[in-house]
Design a binder for these strands. Structure first.
Length: 915
DNA sequence: GAGCCTACGTA
DNA sequence: CGTACGTAGGCTCT
């Protein structure tokens, strides 16, 4: 959409980018014969050349700081005071960089008493007013405030300067949740450690953004500070002057008097001789060629072809399922090489679209790939692909043109996606339902490689197709740009689906299609629903916990006669071991542990009131931190919407993030008060919780076929009491509390690969007693021992473990000569089939419940899953039928040789509903 | 600013 | 010398 007539003004913060380049490139690899370091110069120029080729600015200026002193340091002497000395290897490169730029005909700008950012701000304002499209290139977040409809920021992303991210107002909102002009106010509240500008203590990005969205501006927040409760409110009132000062300092000056105007920055021809001279001095051969090429006017012909097929795929095995290497890196079928080029994309609307979808659906029986392209503000469009064709459909909400696609999405025609859950949620937010999910490349890869943490499209393309998506030349600093559109991505998803499907054995494919895909659909619905959480209860709790934390801290300080940071293990070690001369605790990498168990232990050996106050402080601050993070996660619908990560574990369990709702406290009384804030939603009658009791032990009974353990579960007797009576040879009613707790720890520990040593430590009994307990246990339940041994042995032979439903987890380390690695792998392998089978069973129950509720047209709904527990919101009049279907689905999710036992609870909040 | 470490919440 | 997770703060190095 860029009009070729509109001139583009590019403004670069020379210092900040050169500094990034300095750290991004190795110092030693860039050095002239006489020892001059050139890595920052090389990195900067390389990035600049890429930018010139890509963005084709008509006007260009590079601003530099003159020194670290400016009007800001005069105003606030500590400004940037924490910054260490700039490395001398860097400083020496700056004048040389400026020489190189001058030779290239590029204007550099400095101004006494101002920072480079102020120069950028001034020129950006002037340029924008004069009708330029402005590109600001800077690594300083303060420049975010310059972004508007004319001004875009290119900001180096992680990994140094390898990539530049394009920030417009939309992207800023997506990333930070505020408009660009509000960003400095967020920064002012939070503070900036790197500039030595403290903000409001206790206020992080989340809180700051929340306030800004609530009150509109920093001024308004400060004016109405009295309305903000809790410790954060107090902190705000007490330190408001920090925010005011920060805001004054991070405001960029837009009327600096400069020797140049935007018009003066028009790009000049290169002085080739000068460039040769300077680059020769710097010994930049390849860069010189690139400069000459660019100066010669050939427009961006050096855009890298996507041909660099990374033929790195390990052709290891033919997939024979008994060899230990069956689960090494996926193999790459020959016919998928070499690199192929995506079919041309057509934009489709209306009737054309209807016809295309019909044809595509017929041509692709396994499914049509769909990629939903979306931004924070909404959906941009849809990429669609079959093997032979790709299409793009721009999103036009409510428009008649959308009808065929919307209809197709809601229908049963098979769809292929990468990360379907997120896309289904995005579509649901726009009122577009999706059915017919047939394959998810992300989940499919997880089934093959559950231990991997990298599953982006680009990663899978490299792994399964042997192609590279973008070309990250380590030596070049490449501006980020998505060459492929949504349609191109969809085409990759289509090819990946086929390639990954070929890698799946029958059991894994069934697991994907029959368990994971239905689970994905259920999870999307649960995340969209969220769970009601009471802000009132949480903020009251936070205040109380805050008071208790303060009191504990005060008492702790009084005991040691000084104030230390109680959250700093380092400072605590000084207090405990140097000042109070307590006996040393267990060693850690960085000293001696100060964890709760060790502190309790110390309290016995060397009693001191400080320890008690410290433990109390730990407890209470931990809880308050959980309360605070939950509170900020409450949405305008008064509900918290977690995200379940379906590919987040190697065993098959789910994980939960933003926030994690699978680790809400339950053991201690104070913690349970947090659960009271999880309430039944408006319009619903009650919460229902349902959990499996001892599901992993039951699975162990099933797998081990141990007659004693099976009998224990069939008897209906309390498990630990039953086992205890067997081991200690007493009647069940004569099993003491101690006996029961020892047996319980033993039973649970077994599934984790617990050793006699560990058991002794946990039960605080001696090693001999622990060994005796273990051998007595196995005496009676020998099948369990045999089973556990066989799990590890089988895994060693096959290279992987397997759950009841065919979920595999590879264990290459079982063959490791490294004792520690091997032992760790053995314990994990021991546990994987049990934990994994339990996860499979819960998933089957979950989507069964979802489907029953839908089929019966009930209004009650599933909200949360916590591994062996489900939480539902029950609608008026539906309790009996819902309770029954939940229990049925859970009890019958798998047919084991022992019954699955389900406990149900009911209440107005999560705590009450626990039984 | 990213990444490691310690600590701690859950099943 | 007990499995599986996520989050937070401190601290270090880039």
């Amino acid at each position: 959409m860029t009009t070729s007539e509109q001139p583009t003004l590019m403004l670069i913060d020379g210092h900040s980018l050169a500094f990034r380049a300095f750290y991004a490139l190795p110092l030693d690899s860039f050095k002239t014969r006489d020892g001059q370091h050139t890595n920052a110069i090389h990195g900067f120029i390389s990035m600049l050349l890429n930018l010139l080729a890509k963005e084709k600015p008509t006007h260009l200026g590079v601003a530099f700081d003159i020194s670290r002193y400016s009007f800001r340091t005069r105003e606030y002497a500590e400004y940037k005071g924490t910054r260490g000395e700039t490395p001398p290897e860097f400083i020496g490169q700056v004048p040389l960089l400026q020489d190189a730029l001058h030779a290239m005909g590029i204007t550099t700008i400095t101004k006494e008493d101002f920072e480079a950012d102020d120069i950028l701000a001034t020129l950006s304002h002037q340029g924008s007013a004069a009708g330029y499209k402005v590109l600001v290139v800077s690594g300083d977040r303060d420049t975010i405030q310059l972004i508007d409809h004319n001004v875009t920021l290119l900001y180096p992303s992680k990994q140094g300067v390898a990539e530049l991210t394009r920030y417009d107002a939309e992207k800023v909102f997506e990333r930070y949740g505020v408009q660009p002009h509000q960003y400095p106010e967020v920064a002012a509240l939070v503070g900036e450690t790197s500039d030595n500008l403290p903000g409001i203590p206790k206020v992080g990005e989340k809180t700051a953004v929340k306030w800004l969205n609530e009150y509109g501006s920093l001024d308004e927040i400060l004016r109405r500070a009295d309305e903000i409760g809790g410790k954060v409110g107090e902190s705000l009132r007490e330190h408001s002057e920090n925010a005011v000062r920060n805001r004054r300092l991070n405001h960029l000056v837009t009327d600096v008097e400069l020797p140049v105007l935007p018009d003066d920055l028009e790009r000049n021809a290169f002085d080739l001789d000068a460039v040769r001279e300077v680059f020769g001095r710097l010994e930049f051969r390849s860069l010189l060629e690139r400069v000459i090429k660019l100066g010669g006017g050939a427009p961006s012909a050096d855009s890298f072809p996507a041909s660099g097929a990374a033929v790195s795929a390990a052709k290891t095995s033919d997939g024979s399922s008994t060899s230990a290497s069956a689960y090494s890196a996926p193999t790459m079928p020959e016919e998928l090489n070499p690199v192929r080029v995506a079919p041309r994309t057509q934009n489709l609307l209306d009737e054309e679209l209807r016809g295309w979808l019909e044809r595509a659906t017929d041509a692709a029986p396994l499914g049509v790939a769909v990629v939903v392209e979306s931004y924070a503000s909404g959906i941009a469009g849809f990429g669609l692909a079959t093997e032979m064709e790709t299409a793009f459909v721009p999103f036009s909400p409510g428009h008649a043109d959308m009808a065929p696609l919307v209809h197709w999405l809601a229908g049963p025609s098979p769809k292929l996606m990468h990360g379907a859950k997120q896309q289904i949620k995005t579509l649901a937010a726009a009122g577009i339902p999706v059915a017919g999910m047939a394959f998810d490349t992300e989940i499919a890869d997880w089934i093959i490689r559950p231990d991997s943490s990298k599953r982006e499209l680009s990663e899978l393309v490299g792994l399964y197709l042997g192609e590279t998506l973008s070309t990250p030349d380590p030596n070049q600093l490449v501006p980020e740009e998505d060459e492929l559109g949504a349609a191109g991505h969809a085409w990759l998803v289509e090819r990946l689906s086929k390639a990954i499907r070929l890698q799946l054995d029958a059991g894994s494919l069934a697991l994907l299609l029959e368990i994971e895909i239905p689970t994905l659909v259920a999870l999307a619905a649960m995340e969209l629903r969220g769970v009601t959480v009471s802000h009132e209860k949480l903020s009251a709790l936070s205040t109380e916990l805050g008071d208790r934390a303060a009191a504990a801290a005060t008492s702790a300080y009084a005991e040691i006669g000084k104030e230390v940071n109680l959250a700093s293990p380092k400072q605590l070690q000084e207090v405990l071991f140097d000042q109070l001369n307590m006996p040393k605790t267990r060693a850690t990498k960085t000293g001696y542990t100060t964890d709760a168990a060790a502190l309790v232990d110390l309290q016995e050996k060397s009693p001191h009131p400080f320890l008690g106050y410290l433990l109390e402080h730990r407890d209470v601050t931990k809880l308050r931190q959980i309360v605070e993070s939950l509170d900020t996660a409450i949405g305008s619908d008064h509900r918290i919407h977690t995200t379940y990560v379906q590919t987040g574990t190697s065993t098959g369990r789910l994980s939960s993030i933003n926030p994690n709702l699978q680790n809400i406290p339950v053991r201690a009384a104070d913690g349970r008060r947090i659960r009271e804030a999880f309430e039944v939603g408006v319009g619903f009658q009650t919460l229902l919780t349902a959990d499996y009791s001892q599901i992993e032990m039951r699975i162990m009974a099933h797998f081990s076929k141990d007659a004693g353990l099976i009998e224990a579960f069939k008897s209906g007797e309390d498990l630990h009491r039953f086992v205890g009576s067997q081991i200690y040879g007493v009647a069940p009613e004569d099993v003491t509390g101690d006996m029961r707790s020892h047996v319980k720890a033993m039973s649970y520990g077994l599934a984790y690969g617990l050793s006699a040593f560990g058991l002794a430590k946990q039960l605080k009994i001696d090693n001999g007693a622990a060994k005796k307990l273990m051998s007595d246990y196995f005496e009676r339940f020998g099948g369990v021992r045999d089973y556990l041994r066989s799990v590890v042995e089988d895994a060693r032979i096959k290279g992987y473990t397997e759950t009841l439903f065919g979920r595999r987890r590879p264990f290459p380390d079982l063959a490791s000569p490294n004792r520690v690695l091997r032992d760790n792998a053995e314990r994990a392998a021991l546990n994987a089939p049990m934990q994994g089978t339990a996860a499979d069973i819960m998933k089957i129950a979950m989507f069964g419940i979802e489907q029953d509720i839908a089929n019966l047209d009930l209004k009650s709904r599933l909200l949360l899953q916590v591994h062996d527990e489900l939480v539902l919101e029950v609608f008026e009049g539906e309790w009996d039928v819902v309770e029954k279907l939940v229990v049925d689905r859970m009890e019958n999710a798998a047919k084991l040789s022992v019954p699955l036992d389900v406990q149900v609870g009911k209440g107005q909040n999560w705590n009450e509903a626990a039984h």
